[in-house]
Design a protein around this nucleic acid. Sequence first.
RNA 1: GUGGUUGUAGCUCAGUUGGUUAGAGCAUCGGUUUGUGGUGCCGAGGGUCGAGGGUUCGACUCCCUUCAUCCACCCCA
Length: 462
Amino acid sequence: MSKFKPALPKGTRDFGPEVLAGRNYIIDTIKDVYELFGFAPIETPTMELLSTLMGKYGDEGDQLLFKIINSGDYLSKADENALQRKSSTGLLKSISNKGLRYDLTVPFARYVVMNRNDIAFPFKRYQIQPVWRADKPQKGRYREFVQCDADIIGSNSLLNEVELLSIMTEVFDRLKLSKDLIEIKINNRKVLEGISEAIGASDQFRDITVAIDKLDKIGMEKVLEELKSKNLSEEACTKLQKFLSFSGDFAVTLDYLEKELSPVSQTGAKGVEELRETFALLENKDRFTLDLTLARGLNYYTGAIFEVVPKTIKMGSISGGGRYDDLTDIFGMPDVSGVGFSFGLDRIYDTMQELNLFSAINLSAASILFIGKNEEAQLFNLDKVRQLRKKGLPAEIYPEAAISGGKLKKQMKYANRRNFSNVVVTGVNEMEQRIIKVKTMETGQENSYSISELIIHLQQQS
RNA sequence: GUGGUUGUAGCUCAGUUGGUUAGAGCAUCGGUUUGUGGUGCCGAGGGUCGAGGGUUCGACUCCCUUCAUCCACCCCA
């Protein structure tokens, strides 16, 4: 018999009680805020048909999809031709028709189209579930991670953008990720299109967005270099540089854009107008920056785009989203506009961990452990534990009795490891006197209580 | 897919120009006057040094192959 050394698949993790306490704290915070704003939860299956998933995330996205092999003797139905040619992509269609979901937005679009008759539009849903990507793992990047999406679909109003941005600030405030720690960036795809038009290169819109997205990483020179290599004219580059070099606060940048774009681009003017209206409705205006270099790779965005990045540590975006006009169209339901965004649970956790934000939060409830010296004491304890629980007070009993002469060391050690704040030791004396002897672990002090006194004592502690 | 890093005890890591029986801390278990813990002291168990091949009298150490890992790029949460 051979021994297997246990291991996990690449990019996946176990979560122990301590980590999960932190993750659940974040999830609960997000859920609370979502529901405060009137969003209702939905869930969709872990797997979707490949016909739903493929082609929605670009060629690269298709590569990163986890495919599920068909059940049964799948090879007997495999494409002979592709098998002979050892063509994986050719073979795929005949041996796999399902895959793990890559994000929550596309399954949501499918859901909306399939349930359109039952949905009251505008539909506000939230969804907190894991997604899978066959990426190479690295810092802040996992193959299995949890997204916390909120979307509003079936409404063009910019009020929706404003609501989503309010959710962001509310959640990050509650998590103590303050203004100094994170930056919430806003931009608008129409403005980017307008800029492309203004510099006379509207046909190269995609290249331009991909390139300027890298601006803060590789710098202006390299960006222009990349664009020149894609045949963007010298003149266009110079003009673009002027746009991207502009700096100022939100309002000033808006004025600048309006002056430059309105005369030359209708789309651009519309984008500026949208940004202006959104900005006017925002509550904590100083929390947001208008960042012309924010582009976002996904090309289904058509209006506002958002992204949140930690300022003080090296970490990818912890939240992102935007408005999309045609996402349901690919499933045969045109002219439905939506806007949404996602919190990346894992990266938020990593960020809070790195910034030591969990230390200020008390994640474990004060609890009490009962230790019995013999079987009779165990019964005595069991009765007390049950009474406490009926009052909603968490209480536990150590399953093995510390029998006659046995040491309490093991039990006390366990109490320490589990971080119990109170320990009860019951032996012959306590049972005779009908008292509960409680040791406060922090101070080592011992006090005797009756059950009703103990209930009051514990209620005061929690 | 491209480039780099690191693989030694359950975990985190030492290990000198190649030299006898491979170490530490933490963790585990036991002991330290058989009713009291987290910090003391003593002790024990636990390793085909990632895997395979090569060079050598001799390899954890050098060379090749391979697998895994983490990080950066690409892309993204």
